[in-house]
């Protein structure tokens, strides 16, 4: 059974890349991980297009958990999920968790073969 994929969405390409690197260190190649950051001009921001592409790269039949930083990243991620084909939409969730810690914890949980629901819940336990 495949492990849940993790997508990291930050306004900053560097934060996205750094968080992704920390996740890789934890779980190696056992978990599909993708990150995206920055707007279409390469500045700070997020883009629906970029998020949809990252979901594709981290796709797993077990589903994908998305970790975001600030408001726009969340809104754009929710929009991206709604624009997915119907058979994938229900298998992608946006976690209400801190981006770096959430991504690492979620990936660790995923690497043990946990369900999407459990991965999300474990990440969200970090939120106050």
């Amino acid at each position: 059974m495949a492990n849940v994929g993790i997508v990291i969405v930050s306004h900053s390409p560097k934060v996205a890349e750094g968080a992704s690197e920390m996740v890789r260190q934890m779980v190696g190649d056992t978990v599909p991980v993708a990150h995206t950051g920055g707007n279409l001009d390469g500045g700070l921001g997020t883009s629906v297009e970029g998020i949809m592409a990252a979901i594709e790269r981290a796709w797993s039949p077990a589903g994908v958990a998305i970790l975001v930083d600030l408001g726009g990243a969340e809104t754009n991620s929710e929009m991206a999920v709604e624009m997915l084909p119907e058979n994938r939409r229900g298998k992608v969730v946006v976690c209400n968790a801190p981006i770096v810690e959430g991504a690492v914890i979620a990936a660790a949980e995923s690497s043990g073969g946990s369900s999407l629901e459990t991965v999300k819940r474990t990440a969200e336990e970090l939120s106050p």
């Binding site: 707007n39 997020t46 883009s47 629906v48 809104t75 754009n76 929710e78």
Partner: peptide
């Protein structure tokens, strides 16, 4: 949605 970026795009 695709081009604005930020929260105002969605």
């Amino acid at each position: 949605v695709m081009k604005v970026g930020g929260a105002s795009g969605p």
